[in-house]
């Protein structure tokens, strides 16, 4: 049990030590590869620039995720109501999903005046599909016999949706949400890269670009670390949400006794 936590931590520490040791032993200049200690120091010293940038990126990520949930779930509900709507719209949702965001981002940024809005749209585009497809699958994966039971007792379509389809779809939706959380962050970062310095407020990706131009490589690494940490935090948070909402009944949330 403890090995599950100890082993990766030890491995991480070992890799960091190796990295620091190599950088020192080979006297690699910090503009090529800064050691982890220097990166940590930069993280502290440049906190005044990095923290606001992190907040900007996180805000876009969060807004995109909320929009992805709203649109994804609404579309999924619409699809479950009408086979025709699903047949006519689903292929386009897939096209949006498979088109690389870096390819569309410049267009969106050119078309939309407000850079923040265009960043939001890009992040949303990347994030909404897993929620849509998972929720559609969940709404459809309802036990046939339970559907019969609801019909037997004369339940309306609305009641069946609220009391049967939505709870049955919840584990699927939460699975999609966990994937989308990470994707929203990736979408936000990619869009920031494409947008460059366009915005008034600059996110972490812009800080990375800027540090690259100015050869402030340690700061670049520090920003990178922050993005990774943000991604991990989002994942853990959504995993927790998922666990808390399913722990009473779903197999995926059961502890292994």
């Amino acid at each position: 049990m403890t090995a599950r936590y100890v082993a990766p931590v030890l491995m991480g520490l070992f890799m960091l030590a190796l990295w620091e040791g190599l950088v020192r032993a080979m006297a690699i200049p910090s503009y090529i590869l800064p050691g982890p200690i220097l990166v940590a120091k930069t993280l502290v010293s440049d906190w005044g620039t990095l923290w606001p940038a992190l907040l900007v990126t996180l805000r876009i990520t969060l807004e995109a995720l909320v929009a992805a949930v709203l649109v994804g779930v609404s579309l999924a509900l619409l699809f479950s109501l009408s086979r025709w709507i699903e047949l006519s719209l689903f292929p386009y949702a897939i096209i949006l999903q498979v088109t690389p965001i870096v390819a569309i981002a410049p267009l969106i940024i050119a078309w939309v005046d407000d850079v923040n809005v265009s960043l939001l749209i890009c992040a949303w585009l990347v994030a909404f599909f897993p929620i849509l497809s998972n929720t559609v699958l969940g709404l459809r994966s309802v036990d046939r016999n339970l559907l019969d039971l609801f019909e037997l007792y004369g339940a309306s379509r609305w009641r069946t949706l609220i009391d049967l389809r939505l709870p049955a779809a919840l584990p699927y939706f939460l699975g999609g949400l966990r994937i989308s959380g990470g994707l929203a962050l990736i979408g936000a970062v990619v869009a920031e890269f494409v947008a460059g310095s366009g915005g008034r407020e600059s996110g972490l990706a812009y800080r990375i670009l800027e540090s690259g131009y100015q050869l402030k490589i340690p700061r670049m690494f520090a920003a990178l670390v922050l993005i990774s940490l943000a991604g991990i935090a989002i994942y853990l948070l959504l995993a927790l949400v998922s666990h808390l909402s399913l722990r009473r009944w779903h197999e995926s949330a059961l502890s292994e006794e």
Binding site: D143, N145, D148, L149, L152, L164, A168, W249, H250
Partner: peptide
């Protein structure tokens, strides 16, 4: 009418 299926067919979330 009451109906009992071959499987218990219970809602796991409640």
């Amino acid at each position: 009418i009451g109906f009992v299926f071959q499987e218990p067919t219970l809602m796991p979330w409640t």
